[in-house]
Nucleic acid binder design. Structure first.
Length: 761
DNA sequence: ATAGGGTTAG
């Protein structure tokens, strides 16, 4: 402000008109000066001319004094569109979109003013910022009828609105009407198609751009690379990166960090290393985004050494990089390194965020550290970091794995309170959790209440029912899935087939197996063949099962032979059992389960010499039977019981109760099934060994510590043993309890002396 | 007066 102007301004009788007529630039006035000027004008008693009022408005907006600006606006007698525009532009620029739109509506409705081409782009921007297509559409409609649509700024902003609201076709329509399509709209549209996975359309438009004489720039290329990367078209992303290089464009940090995730996804280490060198050469090697992406890429390519090296060479600690490091370790199964890295970050000055916590929780729940996972979740909340819609699906499997139903329910409650329970990820994880905790009806309620479902949700509920041996439900859900136009995938058929095998639906199972390739075009995988073998095996069609294995288009794996071996145990088929076992010993020489299964079969027939032979082999290989282990949740605490373990503080009571129950059983004429003991020992001794089975211990512990009539829930790390199965059936009737036992294979739901598996497992 | 891109958790 010139000295003269200031003097004029400071004298008390200076009407605003003088300032304007002097062509004084008042945009630099400070807030007090603005207020002084405003007050001065009011004192003169002159009505504000709208031109000057607009200047004052923009001053207030510039100083973020929106309430004063609004008061001023309201005091203008006949406000001009410009007065409103000034404020609307300001709101829009500050991302205060709601206020921008409200003011816009007031301008039209209360004042009957008509917007011009300058105002529209700001309003459209506010609509896209709010993802508000409804108002956006109205504004678009107005632009069409009023002819404002001819303006290229208006068109450009409309293209962005429709892209933002994922209405690619509308965006394209607007773009096609542009008389002078510009590089910005065109690039945005290309990137939109790429993000949507519409590879060919993206490429064609990119080609047309060149034909139209619009030179693609760095942003155009980057948008395409990032778009393909986001839609998971990794190969395309890398190809575009190459083409860009061939076209003579130098990549920047954005390009590199957009292409690297794709390289990682493809696990193409050599390309990754090349790009690493390339980034270095172009001087973006220490860009923090690039470093993050490099750590991620090396982690995905299983090069944890290189990953750590990049991390430690980083000049400045960055939380994103730390998180990438943690998840890189976790991805490669290095849980201890992940925990170490996590704890190191925790003890440093960097504040962990929701991603850090979620990564480590996922790491634990995916690698058998379920209790740690639950503990970390608590610590996370104590530290004041709020879990989000990703954290919950990472935590829920931990609850399911150890059947920590109370924790699971609490987590469910949390997701309802925070409004994330509608997410398909959260919903599927809840279904899995409840199914794994034996509460299939609660899983069903979650499923039924989902507003949107994807294939994962359908598979989750079907898998749940399959695990519970309820083939009728699985098939029924499969039909409603088809009705709702959801296409099945290979996992759907795994659930269908395993449900049929658990329920003895042999014919239906075979039909589904045949249909999956013929009608649904899904090639059976090896796990489907394993289900088929179990299906036939259960029905006693052991020879058919065997020929299925011989004729399948894959090299049979341990699952397939294991399925045959289990069936041989049920039907006492020694000959095929030995064939299957031989294959298993070849494929998994160090898996004690196979040896145990075979020796059980021998023991069942009283072939103790053979039993000894198997035991000797195990011994000579230094192999031990995996210790049986069961879990039970009592009053929010998860108890772990090992087979033969007498260290539990309530052991005396447990043994007493067990003896009592054993006597009651004998009174009713139920004898223990001693063939489930490995060793050839006297019957009484066998009985003693059976007493120590972990699932029995857990059930009795549950009986002692829970109220009469409440449901018990036990998880076992091995398949349930036949003696325990009989014992628990008895207990369910005698004690009038429902008892759920989840073994490695399926659920056993004991009620009134019967089990849902129909004694087949 | 309008408009463009990137990392880490499922």
């Amino acid at each position: 402000m010139s000295r003269l102007a200031l003097r004029v301004f400071e004298t008390h009788h200076c009407p605003a008109a003088i300032l304007t007529s002097l062509h004084i630039n008042i945009t630099t006035l400070s807030l007090p000066q603005t207020r002084q000027l405003h007050a001065q004008i009011l004192r003169t008693g002159l009505s504000l001319d709208s031109h000057f009022a607009t200047k004052l408005l923009s001053l207030y907006a510039h100083h973020l004094r929106f309430s004063e600006a609004n008061t001023l606006l309201n005091s203008i007698q006949n406000p001009h569109v410009f007065s409103f525009s000034t404020l609307i532009h300001a709101y829009s620029k500050l991302t205060r979109f709601t206020e921008a739109i409200l003011l816009f509506s007031r301008m039209i409705i209360s004042h009957g003013l008509v917007p011009d081409t300058r105002l529209i782009p700001s309003v459209i921007k506010a609509c896209s910022g709010l993802d508000n297509l409804r108002i956006g559409n109205q504004v678009h409609g107005f632009c069409v009828t009023s002819g404002l649509c001819q303006d290229s700024f208006v068109q450009s902003s409309l293209v962005h609105l429709y892209l933002k609201c994922s209405r690619l076709n509308y965006a394209h329509k607007v773009f096609d009407k542009m008389s002078h399509p510009d590089v910005v709209s065109c690039s945005a549209l290309v990137s939109g198609y790429a993000r949507d996975g519409r590879v060919n359309e993206a490429k064609m438009l990119f080609g047309r751009m060149v034909e139209l004489g619009i030179e693609p720039n760095l942003v155009s290329w980057n948008g395409m690379v990032a778009g393909f990367n986001q839609s998971g078209h990794c190969l395309e992303a890398v190809k575009v990166f190459r083409n860009m290089h061939l076209s003579g464009f130098k990549p920047d940090g954005t390009t590199i960090s957009s292409v690297l995730p794709s390289v990682g996804e493809l696990e193409d280490l050599s390309v990754g290393v090349q790009i690493h060198g390339y980034a270095y050469k172009h001087g973006v090697g220490s860009d923090k985004w690039v470093v993050c992406a490099l750590i991620d890429m090396y982690g995905k390519c299983s090069s944890t050494m290189e990953m750590s090296q990049v991390f430690y060479e980083m000049s400045q600690r960055d939380l994103g990089a730390c998180n990438a490091l943690i998840s890189g370790f976790a991805r490669n199964g290095l849980t201890d390194d992940a925990l170490k890295a996590f704890n190191r970050v925790r003890s440093q000055e960097l504040k962990l965020n929701v991603v850090s916590w979620t990564s480590i929780i996922a790491c634990c729940s995916q690698h058998g550290k379920d209790i740690e996972s639950l503990d970390l979740f608590r610590e996370m909340q104590l530290s004041g970091v709020k879990p989000n819609a990703v954290t919950i699906p990472c935590l829920l499997p931990a609850c399911g794995n150890i059947a920590a139903l109370m924790h699971g329910k609490a987590t469910h409650g949390f997701s309802l309170r925070t409004g994330i329970s509608d997410s398909v990820y959260v919903g599927s994880a809840l279904i899995d959790m409840y199914a794994n905790c034996g509460r299939i009806h609660l899983a069903r309620i979650c499923f039924d209440r989902m507003p949107v479902r994807n294939i994962v949700c359908w598979n989750a509920i079907m898998g749940g029912y399959a695990m519970h041996g309820n083939a009728n439900e699985v098939i029924e859900i499969f039909h409603s899935m088809e009705k709702s136009n959801q296409k099945p995938d290979f996992i759907t058929f795994t659930s269908l087939l395993s449900a049929c095998s658990h329920s003895g639906f042999t014919d239906q199972g075979e039909q589904f197996f045949n249909k999956m390739s013929k009608e649904y075009g899904i090639k059976p995988r090896i796990e489907h063949y394993a289900c088929l073998v179990t299906l036939l095996g259960r029905a006693g069609k052991l020879n058919e099962a065997y020929s299925t294995i011989e004729n399948m288009p894959f090299e049979p794996d341990a699952c397939v032979w294991g399925a045959l071996l289990s069936s041989c145990r049920v039907h006492n088929n020694m000959k095929l059992a030995e064939v299957a076992a031989d294959k298993l010993f070849e494929l998994e020489p160090n898996n004690p389960g196979n040896y145990v299964l075979l020796s059980n079969i021998y023991a069942n027939k009283g072939l103790w010499k053979e039993v000894d032979r198997v035991r000797d082999v195990m011994k000579s290989m230094g192999m031990k039977k995996n210790p049986g282990c069961s879990w039970i949740e009592i009053k929010n605490k998860v108890h772990m019981l090992l087979a033969g373990d007498t260290s539990h503080p309530q052991m005396i009571k447990i043994v007493e109760k067990m003896d009592n129950l054993g006597m009651e059983m004998k009174k009713l004429g139920c004898l223990p099934v001693t063939s489930f003991v490995l060793q050839d020992v006297e019957d009484q001794e066998k009985e003693h060994i059976l007493c120590g089975h972990s699932e029995k211990l857990a059930v009795v512990l549950g009986l002692l510590n829970t109220p009469q009539g409440s449901t018990l829930q036990v998880i076992k790390n091995l398949r349930i043993c036949g003696d325990c199965h009989g014992f628990i059936k008895f207990v369910s009737e005698f004690e009038e309890r429902e008892i759920f036992v989840r073994d490695t294979n399926r659920f056993h739901h004991f009620k009134n002396g019967l089990c849902s598996c129909g004694d087949f497992w």
